[in-house]
């Protein structure tokens, strides 16, 4: 029987016209094996749908996998939708193929962390645990 207590909850999302979901499934599995509850949205969601799901699921972290090149559109819309829902305590992280300059720009907008294609799985786990710890209890 589970001892109870709050587990880290993460929603893993694919947004827009991006059908590459092998990486996102590996990340979901990795986080599961680290003891987290992982909600997977499936493909082709809008930023607003992801934010509404994140609010209903009361997640700690939204993780967006993006390999389509649309990151400069997708992330700002997610951040804006979170603000509009009074939910900007939910942390946004991302992974995929993103140019270095864009990474810097996205982080300055409020994306908490971005991990690119060669990141070892254990680093993703450690990063999620770190940003949730840094945020503190809620």
């Amino acid at each position: 029987m589970d001892a109870g207590g709050e587990r880290i909850r993460v929603i893993i999302a694919k947004v827009g016209l991006d059908g590459h979901d092998r990486g996102v499934k590996i990340v979901a599995r990795t986080l599961r094996d680290a003891g987290m509850d992982v909600i997977y949205t499936g493909l082709h969601r809008t930023p607003e749908e992801v934010v509404e799901a994140a609010v209903q699921e009361d997640v700690d972290v939204i993780g967006v996998s993006i390999l389509s090149g649309a990151h400069m559109t997708v992330f700002p819309r997610i951040l804006a939708a979170l603000k509009a829902r009074d939910a900007d305590d939910i942390l946004v992280v991302g992974g995929g193929v993103i140019a270095d300059d864009d990474c810097a720009a996205l982080k300055s907008m409020g994306v908490r962390e971005l991990m690119l294609q060669d990141t070892p799985p254990a680093e993703i786990v450690a990063m999620i645990e770190r940003v949730v710890t840094e945020r503190g209890p809620r």
Partner: peptide, 20 residues
């Protein structure tokens, strides 16, 4: 998971049309 205690919750995948 009976081992890690973690879970993959995938039921929302089929519920996309309810979003919003």
């Amino acid at each position: 998971s009976p081992f890690s205690g973690g879970a993959i919750l995938g039921d929302r995948i089929r519920m996309g049309e309810l979003g919003g």
